[in-house]
Each structure stands twice: as structure tokens, then as C-alpha cells.
């Protein structure tokens, strides 16, 4: 996965969202390609890392997985401090979790690093699809429409995906899309702001260079190009 001769960019990524929407499961799927039915709730926060090669750059995701329960929210600033990316997760079968996601996006825009890249994830896609992927939707389970998610993403300038940690649907894609937006080649340490603003030019170059990996931003499309 990683290669020694390529520069490694460390990306601090924080996961936020209501309790039991599947934050830890998304991370577990991404990091270990595994799924646990009854995952113990995250107490405070958990920390995991995953290396990932996208094109010619290697990204080391430093993932801060936070507790979802409302009362843990005041701990969150401790973890999203200096984060370059955030994954705001909701459960597409739980409308309240979408409201909560909206609040997190607002909070991040207001309090987190200015250039933070935010991806919005409507998780538990498996609950509305009969087959693993692209089956007929069981619409009665769906409580948050894809349009609602897309609209929020558009309004707030977010990446948007519907995902399933259980079936791995779109999970790698989310991280890849984030990785793609990260300016490359900066130093490993989490010197947040400086690295990002300096790397602005890089960012544009990258986007021009690799169109294919940026494609899944349009989450409705069944883009399953995963090569993490």
C-alpha cells in the first residue's frame, strides 16, 4: 500500500456525528476492512491510522473517531483542533441524526481550521438496499433522502456520499475523495494552517491531474472505483 519513495502526507481527520450512526464502523471498515455488528460505543475518542496511496502520493490518515452522544460534544473541539479533514456522519434511516450532522457542519465551519475539508456521509445504506449494492431501495427504511444530503453538501461546500460500513459501499471512496482534495507533499507534522494555505496551488494541480478519482463526489452515481 505505501511506498517508500513517495512523499507521505499526514492528514488529521476527525469523525463526527450522532451516536450509533456508524462512525467507528466506517473507520473499522476503512482501516481493517472489517465489520462488527455490536461495536462498543466509543468513549471519548479513539485514534487509528491508515496509509493510502492515491495516484503518486501516499496519505497517512490519522483518524480521530469521536463519541457520538450529545453530552460528549463539548469534548469534540479537543479532537477537531488542527484537523485538515472531517467526516460528518449520519444515519439515512434516522432524521434526527441528519439534523445533528447539520449542526456539526456549522460548528466545524465556525470553529475548526479554515481550510478543513468536510465530507458528509449518509451511512447504513445497506438498510435500504436489498442486495449489497445497487439493489432496489427499500424506501420505507429511508428517512433522509439523497437530495437532502446533496443539498446540504452543496450549501456548505461538502463532499457527499451515501455509504455502508457493513457492505463497504462507498467507504474507500469517501477517504479517497478527501485524500484527493488534500494538498500533497507537505511535511508530516500536523502544522495545519501553514501547510494547507501554502499547498493551495498543489491542490488545484492535483484536481486537474486526476479527474477519475474525484468523480464519486456525485454520490448517486454508482462509482465503485476503489483502489486503496
Amino acid at each position: 500500500m505505501s511506498s517508500a519513495n513517495k512523499p507521505t502526507t499526514a492528514v488529521k481527520l476527525v469523525l463526527l456525528g450522532e451516536a450509533a450512526v456508524g462512525k467507528s464502523s466506517l473507520v473499522l471498515r476503512f482501516v481493517s476492512n472489517d465489520f462488527q455488528e455490536n461495536k462498543e460505543p466509543t468513549i471519548g475518542a479513539a485514534f487509528l491510522t491508515q496509509r493510502c496511496t492515491i495516484g503518486d502520493k501516499t496519505i497517512k490518515f490519522e483518524i480521530w473517531d469521536t463519541a457520538g452522544q450529545e453530552r460528549f460534544a463539548s469534548l469534540a473541539p479537543m479532537y477537531y483542533r488542527n484537523a485538515q479533514a472531517a467526516l460528518v456522519v449520519y444515519d439515512i434511516t434516522k432524521p434526527a441524526s441528519f439534523i445533528k450532522a447539520r449542526h456539526w457542519v456549522k460548528e466545524l465551519h465556525e470553529q475548526a481550521s479554515k481550510d478543513i475539508i468536510i465530507a458528509l456521509c449518509g451511512n447504513k445504506y445497506d438498510l435500504i438496499s436489498k442486495n449489497n449494492e445497487e439493489g432496489e431501495e427499500i424506501e420505507s427504511n429511508r428517512k433522509v433522502s439523497i437530495e437532502e444530503g446533496q443539498n446540504l453538501a452543496e450549501e456548505e461546500n461538502l463532499l457527499f456520499f451515501e455509504t455502508s460500513a457493513k457492505t463497504a459501499y462507498n467507504v474507500n471512496e469517501v477517504f479517497m475523495a478527501i485524500g484527493n482534495k488534500i494538498p500533497s507533499g507537505k511535511k508530516k507534522n500536523n502544522d495545519g494552517g501553514l501547510g494547507l494555505s501554502a499547498g493551495r496551488g498543489d491542490n488545484d494541480d492535483n484536481n486537474n491531474g486526476r479527474v477519475d478519482l474525484n468523480a464519486p463526489i456525485d454520490a448517486g452515481a454508482n462509482n465503485a472505483n476503489c483502489a486503496c
Binding site: G44, A45, W64, L75, M78, N190
Partner: peptide
């Protein structure tokens, strides 16, 4: 090194080391 000690220690206290 800007290490977040609480990420490890907070669960110790909150779950009395049980987790």
C-alpha cells in the same frame, strides 16, 4: 509533540478502566 493525552486517559477514568 502535541500529543492528546486525554484520548487515552479519558476512557480510563470514564469507564473505570473497564473498557
Amino acid at each position: 509533540n502535541d500529543i492528546q493525552l486525554s484520548v487515552v486517559s479519558l476512557p480510563w477514568f470514564l469507564s473505570l478502566f473497564l473498557s
